[in-house]
Amino acid sequence: MLREFELDMPGNLQETLARLPGGTLLAGGTNLLVDLRARREDAERLIWLGNIDGFRDIKIEDGRVIIGGGTTIGDLLRNPAMAEAAPSLVAAARVFGGQMVRNQATVAGNVCSGSPAADTVPPLLSLDAEVHLTCSTGSRTVPLNDFYTGFKTNQRKHDELVTGLSWAAPGPHTANLFYKLARRKGDAITVVGVAVTVTRDGDRCTEARIALGAVGPTVFRAKDAEAMLTGEPLADDLIDSAARKAMEESSPIDDLRASADYRRHCIHVLTRRLLKQAWEDAA
C-alpha cells in the first residue's frame, strides 16, 4: 500500500490552479508514485493533472513547436511531425524507459523532477526551449536555460503549473542530435547524455549548442565550447578542442553507474562524434 494521501482530481485548468497552493502535482506518477512508495516523498495532497482538456496536445504554429504540460514521451513518438520538429527529443524518447513508462511519463514531469539524468532536458536545452508557467494570477515564460537553480531545484513557484514547453523547430541547415550512454538502450538510467545543435551557413557554423546530462548537479550547456564553434568552419581539430572544452566544463561524480573519469572521457568522445555528425548533416 502507498502511504495515505488525499487525491484531488480537478476537471479543468482553473480548478487545478485554485487547488494548487499546498498541493503536489501528479502527472504520470512515474517519479512521484515511486518516491511515495519508497517513502522518499511525503506529499499529503496530490492534484492529478489527467483531467485537463487538451493538456496533452502538441501544436506547431509558425515554425514554433508547443507541447502541453501533459504531453507524454509516448505522445512525442506517435506524432509524425516531431521527427523534424525535435529530432534530439525524439531520439531521447526512443531510449526512455519502457513502453508503459513512456505512455505515462510527461515531458513537464521530467523537466520538473530536475534530475541531472532527465533525458528530455539535454534535447530541450539544445533546442533552446522555454518553459511556460501559470498560476491563478497570471502566466510567465522562463528560458529552460535559466530554469534550474541547483540540484533538483528550479524557478517554479509552489503555486505554478507548467502548462507547456515551446521551441523553434530547427530550420533546413540545422542538425539536432542526442545520444544517451547507458547500460542498455531501454529502461536504464543515463550515464552521460549529450545533445548538440549545429546551424551551418556554407562553410561556417553560425550557431552551436551543446547540452550535457548526468555530468553535473543540473543538465547544463557547455557555453565555452559553444563559443569556440560559432562563426568558424568546423574542422576536425576544432571539433576535438571544443569537445575537450565541454569535458572541462563538466563536473561529474563517481557513482554506482560509472566513475567521474569515465564520464569525462565519454563527454569528450560523444560530443566530438555528435558535432562531427551534426556538421555533416547540416550541410
Binding site: 504520470g28 492529478w48 505515462q104
Partner: peptide
C-alpha cells in the same frame, strides 16, 4: 502489471485506481 487504458499500455502499479 501492464494493462491498457483506452488502448494505451501502462503499468498498473504506477496508476491510481481513481485515474
Amino acid at each position: 502489471c501492464a494493462v491498457q487504458i483506452d488502448g494505451e499500455a501502462v503499468d498498473s502499479c504506477l496508476t491510481l485506481a481513481w485515474m
